[in-house]
Nucleic acid binder design. Structure first.
Lengths: 182, 182
DNA sequence: CGGATTCTGTTGATATCTCAACAAATCAGC
DNA sequence: GCTGATTTGTTGAGATATCAACAGAATCCG
């Protein structure tokens, strides 16, 4: 990671936060570059120093979160199933507004849901039980699709219902269920 | 007011917020320039583009609040006593952390309390009743000191006790009491 | 006390951001 | 369709912030 100038990080952070906030308020179509600049307290021209347009900004925002989740995969795959998911649910909780917006908002181009699903399935790939023999009759495709949609679905439910259980409780139970599945 | 560059405003805002936060955590003596820079997410050198040192920063911070309160004086003195104080208590509430820190923190140079008192007394000066005759036997010094310390005292109490009444309720009651006094 | 460490204030070169202005593109209503 | 208004993307000059480095104070600790 090339160390980035502090100003770059700050502007990009403000811009990303601004987009999320605005998307929670109105449709993505209705959001103008000037809106984003105002909310982020940044000159309109500055946006073009970092992004092509608002679609690029949204795309990079999503990409960053998926990348972050991907990084957690490598770090967490060594843990027990009981603890492995805790950081994920904490991450979802911390970025509540982002996930709730992306999973709910209208006018979001490039379905976030499917990208999230693909990311999870990729992460599960290395976790399928090959030793006990319980999966000998099952195709990898099917297991991954099953677990992936279940995981995305449960996250969607958790976020939409305003996180009725704490991250730890979710992590533990989903950990149990995923372990059975994979 | 010369229109200031957006970057200046942002930097100064971060720095002021950083100082307040840090003072809520430890003594002013123990706070280093680097601490402030880190908390504000600003390069250490940048601080010196705006302030002499941390004392200057604290001083300007206090000055800005007193100036803001002073500006409200002129704007509010035309209102009825019932409504006149509402903006003040809303301001105290909004800047809760600042006032609570300044009134409580140790190691604060240049007593904030006395500057606040002086500011209030100045504001009361034009509000003393000269017509009804109820104050003919009273010296101005005494009235101002009495009302000023009462006002500062009640604010201190309100802030220290985590604002047990809403700003409107405070404004109304203190308005009544001040009107009797002045 | 003396050495080591941290903190301070300043510098110069550079990167980034701001601002105002512009023309082209898009949109809204008639 | 046309007209006016808004939005977009770009430009250039200037302002501000960054970063790394420095030397001198202040502070800590054995």
């Amino acid at each position: 990671m090339a160390k980035l100038d502090r100003r770059i990080l700050k502007t990009q952070e403000s811009l990303k936060a601004a987009v999320i906030e605005l998307m929670a308020e109105k449709s993505f179509d209705g959001i103008t570059i000037q809106d984003i600049a105002d909310r982020a307290n940044v000159n309109r021209g500055t946006i073009y120093l970092h992004y092509q347009d608002k679609f690029d900004l949204l795309d990079k925002l999503i990409e960053a979160h998926l990348h972050e989740l991907g990084a957690m995969d490598e770090w967490a795959c060594e843990l027990d199933w009981n603890d492995a998911l805790v950081p994920y649910f904490e991450y979802f909780e911390k970025n509540y507004l982002f996930f709730s917006t992306m999973l709910a908002s209208t006018g979001v181009p490039s379905s976030f849901r499917s990208r999230l699903l693909a990311s999870f399935m990729k992460g599960f790939k290395g976790e399928i039980d090959r030793e006990s023999g319980k999966n000998t009759d099952l195709d990898e495709d099917i297991i991954l699709q099953y677990a992936g949609t279940a995981y995305v679905g449960i996250i969607e439910w958790w976020i939409r219902n305003e996180m009725p259980y704490p991250p730890q409780a979710m992590a533990k139970q989903i950990g149990t269920l995923l372990e059975r599945t994979l």
